[in-house]
Amino acid sequence: MKNRLKVLRAERDWTQAQLADALEVSRQTINALETGKFDPSLPLAFKAARLFNLAIEDIFQYEADS
């Protein structure tokens, strides 16, 4: 799964720690999400979408071969 978390975060000048705080996860989780090592659960994806005021598919894109 691809995602635009890093870009969206950078656009808002947020640190990984700030985004982690906002999503109630650890900074390590944000890093793992941004580097594509970890895919979020549906509730976490919804939370991110709500935080950025975007649709889930505007942040996360499914890739069949990943």
Binding site: R12, W14, A20, D21, A22, E24, R50, L51, F52, N53
Partner: peptide
Amino acid sequence: LQKDNLNKLMNKTKTDSSAWT
């Protein structure tokens, strides 16, 4: 305006996350 809204949301979630921590 959108940035203000985001910052408000960030502040609100900050309180929630403090509770989580």
